[in-house]
Structure formats: C-alpha cells, structure tokens
C-alpha cells in the first residue's frame, strides 16, 4: 500500500505513477453467492487439460518458446528452399520442420511441470485439485496435444514449402511418404514431449531437467564410442539410435525391441517414477 491512497474518495483515484497502486475500496463488500448448491462432483478432466494447456501458453516464457520454434522452422524451410535449388523431397522438408521442433518442444513439457515448483504455483494447482495424479495426467495429455498440433503444423508447413518449391523453383516434386516415416516423425516429437514431462516430474527443477535432457544424447554418443560395452548398450538405450529406423521406414523385430527398450527406459520409467514423486512430494 502506498501513501498515495490515504485520502480515499468515492470512486477510484487514478494511479499517479506506474508503481502506484489503487486504493482498497473504502467499504469491504462481502462477495456474492454463486447460485445453486456447491458441487458434489470433482473437477472434470477436460477442465484440467484446458487449464494446463492455457498455462503453457499464457506466460511470456511459454509464448516465446513457441515463437522460437516457429522461427527456427521458418529458417530451416528457407534454407531448404534455396539450397540446391529447392530440389528436395517432401520427406526431406518434413524432416527439416520436425527436427528442430522435436528438439525444443520437450522444454515446453519440462516447464509445464517444473514451473509448479520453481514459481511455487503448485500451492494453487494442487490446492484446487488435490488428486495430484489427475494433474499429472492432465499435464501429460496437454503437452501431447501441443506436440500433436505442432507436428500437424510442421506437416502443413513442409507441404506448403514443398509445393512452393515446385511452383516457383520448378523442381520435380516428390510427395512420396511412407506411413512408417510419418509415424516415426510424429512419434519422435511426441516421445520427446512425454520424456520432457517425465524429466520435469523426476527432477522438479528446471535447470536440472533441461541439462540432463540435452546432455544425455550427447553423452551416449561420446561415451558409446569410447567405452565398448556402453556402445553395445546404446543399441538398446540410445533413443537417437533406436529411433533412426523409424525415419528409414522399416523396422526389424530386433529394432522394435531396441525401440521399446529405450522408450521404456527414458520415457515410461521417468514418467512412472516422476508421477510417483509428484503425488507424494510436499508442496511448499
């Protein structure tokens, strides 16, 4: 409260400076009642998802993150458009839009969870929905929805860029896309997002989750090339390796097993342990 509010006149005094704040009303009013009985049913899951989605986009950090992704995709497509006369297949364009996005989107998933602790909004979030496991699922679902929308957008942008290259640069279009490639690109984005949410829940701390998330793949490739048994393990556990066949459009039984093992280790396990931690942690 400030000294500017000592003389209160009916109506509201105009703020004097940017930091000045308005006076409290001279008379306290009791809030009106909301008509009807108080609810006896819990918060609908769709409302939880709605709120979590909104929370990802309503801060400057979240918005800039998405703007940044859009910017990177635009740059990537521009390079593709001019490189080699734009002579690339649609699949290549798709890769150019999906890869940078898949790299950054997991941060959206991480922040969706860690901001509850770093900004301490968990006091409100878990106060309004004490069944925390529902909040955890809502966060995962909303992060996946963002991932899906982003993937759909990258499909459209890649299509537009490819068509533009055909129309304006006169390349021979190549629209051939393997279903498995599409699935692979989509899975790449969504698994990354889910992994981000899982790491966020596991570490409850933004820098730790982000650092581990980004260092892990690099650590695999460096250590894997130096330590032979780690290299062997990487075949099963390095998601960059296990995902690769998806983009090539064919998987052997062994490759499916590799993929499943790595996903279980880096996506399912962090999510499971993370949710367990989230439901038990003390919210301060």
């Amino acid at each position: 409260m400030t000294a500017t509010t000592t003389t209160t006149t009916p109506g509201r005094p105009a703020p004097v400076s940017k930091s000045a704040e308005s006076a409290l009303p001279t008379h306290a009013k009791v809030p009106s009642r909301i008509a009807g009985p108080r609810p006896t049913t819990g918060v609908a899951f769709t409302r939880l998802v709605h709120v979590e989605l909104r929370k990802m986009l309503d801060t400057r950090a979240g918005r800039w993150l998405l703007i940044g992704i859009a910017g990177i995709i635009a740059v990537a497509l521009t390079i593709m458009f001019f490189d080699n006369g734009g002579e690339h297949s649609f699949a290549m364009y798709l890769q150019a839009t999906t890869m940078p996005m898949a790299l950054i989107l997991p941060v959206v998933g991480i922040l969706a969870v860690t901001s509850e602790w770093s900004q301490r909004t968990g006091l409100v979030t878990f106060g309004l929905e004490p069944r925390r496991i529902r909040v955890a699922w809502a966060k995962l679902v909303s992060a996946l929805v963002v991932g899906l929308c982003a993937f759909a957008l990258s499909l459209v942008l890649a299509g537009i860029a490819h068509q533009a290259a055909i129309t304006f640069r006169g390349i021979n279009g190549d629209w051939a896309t393997d279903g498995l490639v599409l699935l692979g690109a989509g899975a790449y984005v969504l698994l990354g997002v889910a992994q981000g949410v899982g790491f966020g829940m596991l570490f409850k701390n933004t820098p730790a989750a982000i650092v581990v998330f980004f260092v892990l793949p690099t650590a695999w490739s460096i250590l894997g090339s130096m330590v032979s048994w780690l290299g062997d393990a990487a075949v099963w556990l390095d998601m960059n390796q296990t995902m690769q066949p998806l983009f090539e459009g064919s998987l052997t039984g062994a490759q499916w097993a590799h993929l499943a093992t790595s996903v279980a280790t880096w996506v399912i396990a962090p999510l499971a342990v993370g949710i367990w931690r989230l439901t038990r942690a003390e919210v301060k």
């Binding site: 108080r38 400057r60 301490r120 909004t121 309004l128 004490p130």
Partner: peptide, 29 residues
C-alpha cells in the same frame, strides 16, 4: 469434490507465476 468451491486457500501470496497477469491467474482458477 472440486475443493476450490468449498475452501478458499491463500497459503502464500508470492506463490504465483511472475509472468502471468493477475487477471490470468484468476481466470485459470
């Protein structure tokens, strides 16, 4: 069920996302 309709909590006024507007905080609730 839907505890916000039964119990009003204010446990720490500073525990709000610094990047949200006051109105947005209330809208989410």
């Amino acid at each position: 069920p839907n505890p916000g309709r039964h119990v009003g909590l204010l446990l720490d006024a500073s525990a709000q996302h610094a990047g949200r507007t006051g109105r947005e905080v209330l809208t989410l609730g």
